Simulated scan of single mutants.
Amino acid sequence: MTDHPILWSFRRCPYAMRARLAILVAGVTVEIREILLRDKPAEFLATSPSGTVPCLRTADSVYDESLDIMVWALQQRDPKGLMNMPDDGWALIKANDGPFKAALDHTKYIARYPNLNLETERENASMHLRTLDRQLAGQSFLYGDTMTIADLAILPFIRQFAHIDRTWFDAQSWTNLRAYLDRFLASDLFARVMEKRKTWAVGDDPTYFA
C-alpha cells in the first residue's frame, strides 16, 4: 500500500469519470492506476469485488461503487460545497443510474438487444433528458447557479448519450441541456479529468491525481 489511496480507473468510463471529477474538486490526492477493461490486471481483480472500475482502496477500506467514491472524496474536503444539495438530487442521481443508464446502454449497444427497438429506447432515455432540460431553465446547474454532486454524477452520462449520435442530439429541442453539456466539455475540469495516462503495470512508479 502506498502513502495515498489507490484509484483504479479507465479514462472513458463515465463511472470512473465522475469519481475522478469528485476527487479533483475535493483536492484529495490519490495514486491513479489506468487499466484496460479487456485486460484487467490481477492486482485490480484482487482489490475490486465486482471487477469493475472505478475502485478505490484506502488504508482500511475498499470502495467499489463510483458514487461511494464521490461521497468519500467530498467527505474529506468539499471546498465548493457540492454536498449542499436538496434531497431531490439523490433521487435524480438514482434515476440517472437506473432507468436512464439502461436506456442509454440499449441505445448505444442496440445490436446486443435484438428484442428491443432503437427508437423506443432512445425515447426512454430522452424523457429523462427533457426533465433535466426543464430543470436547467434559467440556471447554470441542476440546482441553481452552483454546482452540486448531482451535476458531477450525471454529466458524464449525458456526454456518453450525446456521443452516440451528436448530430441527432444537437437537433433536439433541449437547448438548456445542450448548453449545460457544452460548458462542461469546454471546462478546465473536464480537460483535467480526461488527461491521457499510460496503462498501469507492476513495477511502475506511482502516478498521482489531485
Rank of each mutant, 00 (worst) to 15 (best):
F141A: 05
L21Q: 04
W174Y: 14
R38A: 12
L36P: 03
S66G: 12
W174K: 01
R166W: 08
D165W: 09
A125S: 08
R77T: 11
L129I: 13
L7A: 05
I6H: 09
I164R: 08
A46N: 12
H128F: 15
G27C: 01
A19M: 05
A111W: 04
Y143S: 08
G27W: 02
W90Y: 14
L104E: 01
L132G: 00
C13D: 14
L7R: 08
H106Y: 14
N176T: 12
K94H: 13
R130C: 04
A26M: 11
N117R: 08
K40D: 03
L67R: 11
Y180R: 10
A102R: 15
F209L: 03
P14Y: 09
L74H: 10
I154C: 11
A191S: 12
A42L: 06
F44E: 02
F209M: 02
L7F: 07
V30S: 02
D87S: 11
M147Y: 02
D39G: 05
S48H: 13
H4F: 13
F184D: 05
F44Y: 12
P206A: 14
M147E: 05
K40P: 10
F157P: 00
M147I: 11
R77K: 15
I32M: 09
F141C: 10
C13F: 01
T146H: 15
T2A: 14
K40C: 11
Q172D: 04
A125D: 00
E65F: 07
L37F: 03
R38V: 11
A103S: 08
L152V: 05
F209Q: 03
L152E: 02
K198H: 14
L116Y: 06
H4V: 04
V193A: 03
Q160Y: 12
L152M: 10
T120A: 15
N115D: 14
G89E: 06
L129D: 02
L129G: 08
D105R: 13
D97E: 14
I154K: 10
K196V: 13
L7H: 08
P79M: 07
L82D: 03
S48A: 13
